[in-house]
């Protein structure tokens, strides 16, 4: 394909060819497959009007489901932040036998289908499961409680923090740490005031990614959640329930809210990444 004639360029983006083709195809594909269908979602609730929309969202059951989905995702993201930092540190800074296998397995939640994860987790944490049995002897029930939802969402978000931190940890030179040590800081002080702040942007990015991923999760949660309205019913399930009641507008309303919050999260994420890039 010859370089595009300048006829339709409103400015010269670059000396390279293919701008029109690549951007055109990108926009077309994006619009047809993502934007137009999402528009259908956004438009649908309006058939019940703004007041109807507000009513759906004010309903206690909907509020609970959203709180559960977002709340459990937040807790799961927090767990993944703490342990993800630990795992990333261990994988980058230490050597131990089998490290490569461990490193590879971190990506399992990316590769394993959600339904498979769902039935595996619900089998594992059921009252007669390998983990569920000893836990229930101590009075802790995981399956069919919000705790089960948190466990499933922790699984789902696990790789995000680790994979976001690893390249940063690898890159991070030890000079700053060594300088701090020479200046008399203890190891702990060094970690707290030199290493941790340097990792913070990536840590937050990873946590935000894990959170965004967890909020809408369905397949792995649905087998282990209790689905009790107001207690252990996740928002995506509520969408399905409303759909099956023929309340398409209501289902779409919840979908729009989740979409809006996800969009805001994404924007924040991208801003975070821009900030951390600027800090380098």
């Amino acid at each position: 394909m010859a370089a595009l004639a300048p006829a339709r360029r409103w400015r010269n983006p670059s000396a390279l060819p293919g701008f029109g083709l690549s951007l055109g195809f990108t926009l077309f594909y994006l619009s047809a497959l993502v934007l137009v269908p999402l528009a259908a979602l956004v438009i649908r609730p309006w058939e019940i009007g703004w007041s109807g929309f507000r009513e759906v969202l004010a309903d206690a059951r909907v509020v609970h489901a959203l709180l559960l989905s977002f709340g459990a995702s937040f807790i799961a993201a927090a767990i993944n932040t703490a342990f993800g930092l630990l795992v990333a540190w261990v994988l980058v800074r230490y050597r131990f036998p089998g490290k490569n296998v461990v490193d590879a397995i971190v990506d399992l939640p990316f590769a394993l289908p959600t339904a498979v994860a769902g039935i595996a987790l619900s089998t594992l944490y059921a009252r007669n499961g390998w983990i569920g049995a000893p836990l229930s002897e101590h009075g802790i029930t995981v399956a069919y409680t919000p705790l089960g939802v948190v466990v499933a969402l922790t699984f789902i978000g696990l790789p995000f923090v680790v994979r976001t931190l690893q390249p940063v940890l690898v890159e991070m030179s030890r000079e700053a740490e060594e300088a701090a040590a020479t200046l008399g800081a203890t190891r702990f002080q060094t970690l707290r005031r030199v290493v941790f702040p340097a990792l913070l942007p990536s840590l937050l990015t990873g946590a935000a990614l894990a959170f965004a991923r967890a909020v809408g999760e369905y397949g792995s949660v649905i087998f282990i959640a209790g689905n009790l309205p107001g207690i252990s019913e996740i928002a995506p399930l509520l969408i399905i329930i409303k759909l099956n009641e023929n309340d398409v507008a209501g289902a779409s309303a919840i979908g729009v809210v989740m979409l809006a919050i996800s969009f805001v999260m994404l924007l924040t994420l991208n801003l975070l990444q821009a900030w951390s890039a600027a800090r380098k």
Partner: peptide, 14 residues
Amino acid sequence: DLPFSVSPVVSGLI
């Protein structure tokens, strides 16, 4: 990036 954070249920619904 948007589809990445849309719930799969919503992805089918649309």
